[in-house]
Design a protein around this nucleic acid. Structure first.
Lengths: 152, 152
DNA sequence: TCTTTAGTTCAATCGCGATTAAACTAAATA
DNA sequence: TATTTAGTTTAATCGCGATTGAACTAAAGA
């Protein structure tokens, strides 16, 4: 692969990371930073390298990086006056953890809804019960899978 | 349960539905309408009942309901001049479908990232490969669970 | 001590989606 | 036919998060 192919591929991918992270509630810049730290060949970049490559202001970079570090998505290494950033390799199941929290929210909403129903046999009540059962099966299943993956 | 307890419980829950749906990218009003159609004892409500109970304008209701109907989250029944709305009972795995699409996006981002790496054995490349493996196991596992649930 | 550098803070702006109000349309009713 | 009703359309507003720019701070280097 030619260097300029690689570079333009990286730039496209950085924007794709930005779009994906934006879709799950991050600032676009946060996603692009994560993208940059993911795709670049050197996997530890300075503040300056980040703002120059992404063409963003020092202000945004400072705010967004602080948030990413606080959320443990990015790790920071201080070297002299400079800060270097790299991707924090989190738990493999991070995505799944997030999804299970979502399932818990839905389960709570549906369960509370059923509690408030006068007719527990209403069409919606029965439907909600089915969803709750599916969620419960899912969680059991996932617990098993997590163990299996962890003991490889 | 007293009627006014039920009513205030419903109102709280409608706002909770609103917050949850907002967190996954819906307009707050969309979530509150879904909440209302979920918790109310009569499970089919007219346009007027919806705007009066939720205290929203005809305009918002019209726009949001059209979108919800287009997305098959809500079904509409026309009776004379009036439109009645009810929750559309979708596929039990709707939540899971959405999550699997997310997994596919992540898998694509990570896979493309690895392709662009000069060093396929870099720390991030190895980490991304692990995540891809976990996603693949997850999808296999889920396919099995779906079949199991469907054949009950 | 003076200057440079690296990053932070914060007020101002920009853009955008959500919501409303009011005018409008079309169908039902009188 | 005239009127009422149900819902739609759209221009305007509102609020808010993202981003920037510029002033500021603190530490390193001369």
């Amino acid at each position: 692969m030619l260097d300029n192919e690689r570079l333009s591929g990286q730039n496209r991918l950085i924007d794709d990371f930005g779009a994906y992270f934006e879709s799950i509630g991050f600032q676009p810049i946060a996603g692009r930073i994560i993208g940059l730290l993911s795709v670049s060949d050197r996997e530890e970049l300075s503040f300056d390298e980040i703002i120059n490559r992404l063409k963003i202001s020092k202000g945004s970079a400072s705010v967004v990086l602080r948030r990413l570090v606080a959320e443990c998505r990015v790790a920071v290494v201080e070297s002299g006056r400079r800060h270097y950033y790299r991707l924090n390799q989190q738990n493999l199941f991070e995505l799944l953890d997030e999804f299970e929290r979502m399932c818990d929210s839905v389960r709570y909403l549906l369960n509370t809804t059923i509690d408030l129903k006068t007719d527990k046999e209403s069409s919606n009540a029965k439907y909600f019960n089915q969803i709750i059962n599916t969620i419960d099966r899912y969680k059991t299943n996932m617990a098993t899978m997590r163990q299996a993956v962890q003991t490889i």
